[in-house]
Each structure stands twice: as C-alpha cells, then as structure tokens.
C-alpha cells in the first residue's frame, strides 16, 4: 500500500536518512524502531511531506507521491499522529476533532466519524467542550489519535504514542492500536519502546543512524542480535 524506495532525506542539505526502503501492506501494523536520533521522525515527516526527499521515491496506492504536499497526502489518507501529541491547546476537544476531519475528503463524513471516535474513546466524549490544553497527557494522546482517525486515515502513522505516558495509559493506547488493527487499519508505529512494539506489530524495521539495520517479522527482529546493537549504538 505504501512503499518507500531508496529514500534520502534530511535538513538544510545534510542527509539524515540514507537509502531507506520499506513497505506497508494493507491492514498491516508495522513497527519502526530505533534509538534517539536514529532518524525516525525525519522518516515519518518525509512520509507526511513535511520534509522533502533529496532522492528516492515514495509510492502510495501505486501513485508516486514523492513530491506531493502535506495537504495532498492528507487528502489521500496518509495521516500522522505527531510526537508529543501537538493538540491545539486553546481549542475544545470537539474543535480539535473537527480539524482532524478538515480535508475535503473527510469533511462530509465528519458527523459519522466523530461518533466512531467518541465510541472508541468515551473519555473524550465527557470532555468535548473542554480546551485540549487542560487534558492529561494520556487524554491528549487519545485526542491526537482520534483527530487522526477523523481524517479517514488509510495509513495512520503514530509517532512515539507511548512517550511520557503512565504504564496504564500506554497499555490502554496499545489496546486501541490492536483494536484498530482488527478493524483493518494500516498503521506505522514509530517507537523507541522495543518490546512493546514487537508485541503489537507484525513486522518491524530497526533504524540505526539513518539506515535500516534490521527488518523482518516481529519474531525475527526480536531475536536478531543486531537489533540490540542498533539500540545501544555499538
């Protein structure tokens, strides 16, 4: 469904990612692992169109989207749930969700989609008119995911969803990930938390200093000694 070939990307002319190739199949949950500074966020931002690739191709549904703008990608259904949630703090939960469904494709479907999201996160229903900035970290993460789902995501990319959350909330969020997977959503889980991701993804890629060090089924990645090496930076 989403394919990356030989991607080189970075900032201000300095490549951070070197020759990245990966693939997401329909309905799959794929983990993208790596230590800090491995290039995970650069990769997800290249997929969202925030970072323009220097070389390589990104193909979505058979179409070359390498040069597509962030807006065009959202329109196609490539949705990112950013690291640190980035909810709109001075807007209500409801308004945040409405903004999630801002793109032309999702806009007419907002009422239906809103119901779905609120059924998935009953906590948000209670807080609909509260400013998003007053929510707890876990609630903000729910809102960020809900906001992503409002866009009728075809590929949902979650950047560090467990960051800064209590273990209880982490469990809850990953429960939601499992549920979305059961519903057939294609997801990319960008995470630092190795064991957690290996449990919830079918396949994984391990990034190490801008290139893919290990890839394969979760079991394979788990047992590959290079995975630990990539993490420890050996």
């Amino acid at each position: 469904m989403l394919e990356v070939e030989g991607l080189v990307a970075g900032y201000a002319g300095t490549p951070i990612l070197r020759d990245i190739s990966l693939r997401l199949d329909r309905g799959e949950t794929v983990g993208l692992l790596g230590a800090n500074n491995a290039g995970k966020t650069t990769l997800i931002n290249s997929l969202s169109g925030i970072v323009t690739p220097m070389a390589g191709r990104i193909i979505f549904d058979g179409r070359d989207v390498t040069r597509a703008t962030p807006m065009q990608r959202v329109e196609m259904g490539i949705i990112q749930v950013p690291e640190g949630r980035l909810v709109f703090p001075e807007m209500s939960v409801r308004e945040n969700l409405l903004l999630g469904g801002f793109c032309d494709r999702a806009r007419p479907l907002r009422p239906r989609q809103m119901e779905k999201v609120l059924a998935l996160f009953p906590r948000l229903k209670e807080r609909l008119s509260q400013p998003a900035g007053t929510l707890s970290g876990g609630e903000q993460q729910m809102l960020a995911i809900g906001r992503g789902l409002m866009a009728e995501a075809r590929v949902l990319m979650l950047d560090e969803p467990s960051l800064g959350l209590s273990p209880l909330f982490v469990q809850y969020i990953f429960g939601i990930v499992d549920q979305l997977h059961k519903d057939g959503l294609t997801m990319l889980l960008v995470e630092q938390n190795l064991n957690l991701t290996l449990r919830h993804a079918q396949r994984c890629y391990v990034l190490e200093r801008g290139h893919i060090a290990v890839e394969g089924a979760a079991e394979v990645v788990k047992n590959d000694p290079r995975t630990r090496q990539a993490y420890l930076g050996l």
């Binding site: 969202s48 925030i50 703008t69 962030p70 807006m71 959202v74 329109e75 949705i79 990112q80 950013p82 980035l86 909810v87 709109f88 703090p89 001075e90 807007m91 308004e95 409405l98 903004l99 999630g100 801002f102 793109c103 806009r107 906001r147 866009a151």
Partner: peptide
C-alpha cells in the same frame, strides 16, 4: 472551518499542516 484553520495555524502551524491545512 476557515476560522478554525486560522486558529489552528496560530496555535501550532506544524500540527495544522498535518491536518491537511494549507
């Protein structure tokens, strides 16, 4: 929606872009 997109850009332009706001 136009008004909300203005406020979204004000509060966090990066997140607004991720919502498909130009």
């Amino acid at each position: 929606d136009f008004g909300r997109s203005i406020r979204a850009v004000h509060q966090n332009a990066h997140a607004a872009a991720l919502m498909g706001i130009d």
